[in-house]
């Protein structure tokens, strides 16, 4: 019989791989406190908390932050509405073109962002649509639909059809069934999908660079700082803000869907 213990080599490679995935991010936190602002010197010559104050005072960070929050909020709301609708349709019925629709939903995230971005850019150019906040939202909502869809459709599948029939037998109409039976059962999955969509949109940079025109979201601001650094430690502080703003919703999403057959985020 084969032994059911992992060899030491495998254990080391597996744990090493996990560390490889996590240690680099921790470094950002260290660098936010460095006193060195001209280079990425390691180890930091000294530690200070002054950069958080400096970043707070910087006028050019706030508008991109507000824009990012605004875009992510609207895109998430749109994606939640559209994603829920399509998952409700796809969960039960089988109809002609079902496979094609599921492909269509996944496509915006399956194809590289540069293609989605360039496609939108081409369309705006052909139709003479000027860049605005809404062109950014248009792109974000499109690739966020699949995130909500994945979470919602998994929950729909787990939901027994019996409770909907029971609700109808007890005299509820479709809207009452939706409000009192379906929504409470779906809510955590929808919330998780929304959280992940928010995190994805808040952090998105590739599609955004094609649809933003002159406007800056926070990731675009950060990208500009990366290409041409001005005040490196301030960028470090912003990096922490972006990291926290994406990780917190993700952790909430995992918490909301823990133990279920569906797993949040499996479809990124």
């Amino acid at each position: 019989m084969h032994s059911d213990r992992a060899s030491w080599g495998l254990k080391i490679a597996a744990v090493g791989g996990l560390l490889f995935l996590h240690l680099p991010i921790l470094l950002i936190f260290l660098y936010a406190f460095t006193t060195e602002d001209k280079s990425y010197q390691f180890p930091p010559p000294g530690l200070t908390t002054q950069w958080f104050g400096v970043a707070w005072e910087r006028e050019d960070i706030w508008p991109p932050l507000y824009l990012s929050l605004w875009v992510a909020t609207i895109a998430t709301v749109l994606a939640m509405i559209l994603g829920t609708l399509v998952s409700a349709a796809m969960a039960r019925a089988s109809f002609f073109g079902r496979e094609q629709i599921s492909l269509l939903i996944i496509l915006p995230i399956a194809l590289p962002g540069v293609i989605t971005g360039m496609s939108l850019r081409s369309a705006f150019s052909i139709m003479d649509i000027p860049f605005s906040t809404w062109t950014i939202i248009l792109g974000h909502a499109t690739f966020c639909i699949v995130i909500v869809y994945n979470n919602a459709v998994a929950r729909f599948r787990r939901l027994s059809g019996g409770i909907l029939e029971a609700s109808a037998d007890l005299g509820a109409n479709s809207f009452q069934t939706f409000r009192y039976v379906l929504l409470p059962n779906l809510s955590t999955a929808l919330l998780a999908g929304g959280m992940l969509a928010f995190a994805l949109s808040f952090d998105e940079v590739i599609v955004t660079t094609f649809t933003a025109g002159q406007q800056s979201t926070l990731p675009i601001w950060m990208l500009q700082e990366l290409v041409r650094p001005r005040q490196r430690p301030v960028t470090n502080v912003v990096a922490i803000v972006v990291f926290v703003a994406t990780v917190v919703p993700i952790l909430i999403a995992f918490y909301l869907t823990r133990g279920g057959s569906e797993t949040a985020g499996a479809g990124k």
Partner: peptide, 24 residues
């Protein structure tokens, strides 16, 4: 899952720090 979902740009930036000539 966490590294999959956490900020793409922050991850790239972390590597800029790591790989820099004066880096870790």
């Amino acid at each position: 899952m966490l590294p999959l979902w956490s900020s793409y740009l922050v991850k790239v930036y972390a590597w800029k720090l790591i790989l820099a000539k004066e880096g870790i």
